[in-house]
Computed example of a mutant assay.
Amino acid sequence: MDRVEFINKMDSKLRLIRNELGFTQDKMSEIIGLSKKTLVQIEKGRSSLGWTGSVAVASIFRDSEILQMTFGGNPQELIFSLAFENYERDYQSTMGGKVWWRDLEQKASYKIQQNIISQHYRILDNQDRRVCSSFNIEYIRKRLLELCKGESKNDY
């Protein structure tokens, strides 16, 4: 998935998200900071949220079941992977990939998973905390080796 596909999916799901939450067009446009006219144009497929609008909607409504099913879980991690080439942040707890993820590799106390919908990758530690995420599998594999080497050095 790239930014264009992400934006297109957000554009196409906007009306569904609004209906899921029971918002009128007036209320939804107020929440996301658009005019009602612009919102109507997006819902009709004549305009687009763009990157910034898509990120805002995905962030505000990250708990939406529509978004969860569209992107394979909370869209925040996907947004970070699209915004940054190879994303690393403080280890954040996950559910371990029980629903939207498949295990690809495991070394030492780390594992590589791939999202079954967006196809991006992440590394989890043995407590199911996310270490990093990226669309670049070579980066992820290299990072896994670095983590395993660092772990073995700490064993001595």
Rank of each mutant, 00 (worst) to 15 (best):
T70V: 11
L39Y: 07
S59D: 03
W100M: 11
A58F: 03
S134A: 03
I79K: 00
Y91I: 11
E105R: 04
M10H: 07
Q119G: 08
A58I: 08
N86F: 15
R89A: 01
N74I: 14
L78R: 08
Q25E: 11
R141V: 03
T70N: 08
M1V: 05
L39Q: 00
K13M: 09
S134C: 04
I66M: 10
R129H: 05
K142G: 11
E88Y: 13
C148S: 15
N154D: 10
N154I: 13
T94N: 08
E5L: 10
G73T: 13
E88Q: 15
F6R: 01
L16I: 09
S12K: 14
D90C: 12
Y139P: 09
D26H: 12
L104T: 00
Q114L: 05
N154P: 10
F71C: 03
G22L: 06
Q113E: 04
G73S: 13
G33Q: 06
L145M: 09
C148N: 15
K44P: 02
L145R: 05
S54K: 00
Y139S: 09
M69N: 13
V55L: 00
G22M: 05
V131E: 07
G45Q: 09
E151V: 10
R122M: 08
I123A: 05
E85P: 09
Y91K: 11
L78A: 07
K13V: 04
C148F: 15
T38H: 14
L14E: 03
A58L: 02
T70W: 02
V55F: 00
Q127V: 12
E146Q: 12
E65Q: 09
Y156C: 09
Y121A: 01
G73P: 10
E151D: 13
K107L: 12
K142D: 11
S47R: 09
Q76H: 12
M10I: 05
N126A: 03
Y87M: 06
M10P: 07
Q25C: 05
N74R: 14
A83F: 08
F84S: 14
G150M: 03
